[in-house]
Computed example of a mutant assay.
Amino acid sequence: MNTTTKLLAPLAAAALLTGCGASEYSPSITTTPAEMFADGCQSCHGEKGTGKFGLLLRIAGSDEPIEEILEKIEKGGTVMPSFPGINTAQRLALATYIKTL
């Protein structure tokens, strides 16, 4: 196992263990997309979407279609929790914001 793998393996394992399930995050109706990102996404994806651990969890500059981003926010993914407390309009606003990162 090389040095980089030894350093990244514990970080990846920690990310996997903390991301499963549903998030309790539920923004108010006046919460802006930037605030939703800061409150619900930034802890894993980094302040500007560049990833908490560099390339790991990077979403900035993604070419992922907005429909897939919407689905990941709603249902979660392999590491990412679902966010059932974010309503449809807020999910669209957040996904649109994410595409600007």
Score class of each variant (00 low, 15 high):
residue 95 A to Q: 05
residue 101 L to K: 12
residue 22 A to E: 15
residue 68 E to H: 13
residue 27 P to K: 02
residue 54 G to Q: 08
residue 52 K to L: 14
residue 55 L to E: 13
residue 1 M to F: 09
residue 93 A to V: 00
residue 57 L to D: 10
residue 61 G to P: 04
residue 89 A to Q: 06
residue 45 H to C: 05
residue 74 E to V: 01
residue 70 L to Q: 06
residue 91 R to E: 04
residue 34 A to P: 03
residue 9 A to E: 11
residue 47 E to C: 00
residue 17 L to K: 14
residue 88 T to S: 14
residue 10 P to N: 06
residue 48 K to I: 05
residue 61 G to K: 11
residue 9 A to W: 04
residue 14 A to F: 03
residue 35 E to G: 00
residue 31 T to L: 10
residue 70 L to N: 10
residue 76 G to L: 12
residue 2 N to K: 02
residue 38 A to R: 11
residue 10 P to I: 04
residue 17 L to W: 01
residue 67 E to N: 05
residue 25 Y to W: 04
residue 79 V to S: 07
residue 70 L to D: 07
residue 8 L to W: 01
residue 16 L to R: 15
residue 56 L to T: 09
residue 41 C to I: 05
residue 13 A to N: 07
residue 19 G to Y: 01
residue 94 L to E: 00
residue 23 S to E: 05
residue 46 G to N: 01
residue 89 A to S: 07
residue 91 R to T: 06
residue 19 G to F: 04
residue 96 T to C: 02
residue 72 K to A: 12
residue 41 C to A: 09
residue 99 K to V: 03
residue 26 S to D: 08
residue 61 G to S: 11
residue 76 G to V: 12
residue 53 F to S: 11
residue 30 T to F: 10
residue 22 A to I: 09
residue 59 I to W: 01
residue 92 L to I: 02
residue 47 E to I: 09
residue 14 A to L: 11
residue 19 G to N: 04
residue 91 R to K: 15
residue 77 G to R: 08
residue 99 K to N: 03
residue 44 C to Y: 07
residue 47 E to P: 02
residue 55 L to T: 14
residue 24 E to N: 13
residue 51 G to W: 01
residue 20 C to H: 13
residue 23 S to V: 10
residue 13 A to P: 00
residue 53 F to G: 01
residue 28 S to R: 10
residue 11 L to C: 04
residue 60 A to V: 03
residue 93 A to F: 00
residue 40 G to V: 10
residue 25 Y to I: 08
residue 57 L to I: 03
residue 48 K to W: 06
residue 52 K to P: 00
residue 91 R to P: 06
residue 2 N to E: 02
residue 41 C to E: 07
residue 86 I to M: 08
residue 37 F to C: 08
residue 60 A to Y: 03
residue 65 P to R: 13
residue 30 T to S: 14
residue 62 S to G: 06
residue 94 L to Y: 03
residue 64 E to F: 04
residue 88 T to H: 13
residue 46 G to S: 07
residue 51 G to H: 05
residue 55 L to W: 10
residue 83 F to S: 01
residue 99 K to I: 01
residue 46 G to V: 07
residue 92 L to A: 10
residue 7 L to E: 12
residue 56 L to G: 06
residue 2 N to T: 14
residue 87 N to C: 10
residue 80 M to H: 10
residue 96 T to K: 15
residue 30 T to A: 15
residue 49 G to Q: 08
residue 43 S to T: 14
residue 20 C to M: 12
residue 50 T to M: 09
